[in-house]
């Protein structure tokens, strides 16, 4: 109720404020006149030069920057490709090394060279010079049983070419005569497999 009355009051109040129409402005064109321009061409040329130089310089600078960034990006791309290629090469070489280091590969290679697993070693105690243990020469294991479970059987494409004949990791009698009998004062293991 009160809002309505307030609103109508406001309307009635606002009317007298808005109502006066703009009074026509008397024409005074005759009294206003353009101020004659001051022509000072001498001061304008350097300004233009500065602006144009800035513009051209800025554009060129931007262009140069963009070119440089793009150039670097191309270099990055090329170097990235090179890095990928090199890391793949490294990966391949590492795989070859790992395959050669595998106990099965080492054992078959050692067997092929006529080596045999070592026998019990002897230990030399430094404090009293006593020899502990009875050293014996290693003998070639007999009974060449095939080992299908540990014999690798990868597809040729993934297997490095240098891993040697995996299919024949059986213990075979050494081709050469066995290595000379072990000496009496070995202090390390004969197997040479533990690092």
């Amino acid at each position: 109720m009160s809002a309505m009355t307030n609103g109508s009051a406001a309307r009635t109040l606002s009317l007298p404020l808005r109502s006066p129409l703009p009074t026509p402005v008397p024409k005074r064109s005759s009294s206003l006149r353009l101020v004659p321009q001051r022509r000072s061409s001498a001061a304008r040329a350097p300004f233009l030069v500065v602006v144009v130089t800035l513009l051209v310089g800025g554009l060129l600078g931007l262009l140069l920057l963009n070119t440089l960034v793009a150039q670097d990006s191309f270099t990055l791309h090329d170097l990235g490709k090179q890095a990928t290629s090199l890391s793949r090469q490294e990966q391949e070489l590492a795989r070859q090394v790992q395959a050669l280091q595998a106990p099965a590969a080492l054992a078959s290679r050692a067997t092929a060279l006529g080596m045999v697993p070592g026998g019990p070693p002897a230990f030399l105690r430094l404090s009293d010079g006593k020899v502990l243990g009875q050293p014996t020469a290693g003998v070639a294991p007999v009974a060449p049983v095939t080992r299908p479970s540990v014999t690798p059987s990868t597809t040729p494409s993934t297997k490095p070419a240098t891993t040697g004949p995996h299919g024949s990791t059986t213990w075979t009698a050494p081709r050469q005569s066995p290595p000379p009998a072990a000496t009496n004062t070995r202090t390390t293991t004969q197997t040479g497999t533990h690092r």
Partner: peptide, 14 residues
């Protein structure tokens, strides 16, 4: 076991 003892350089019992 013999392989393990040799690999880990376990001194014989004596």
């Amino acid at each position: 076991m013999g392989f393990a003892l040799r690999s880990y350089e376990v001194v014989p019992s004596g």
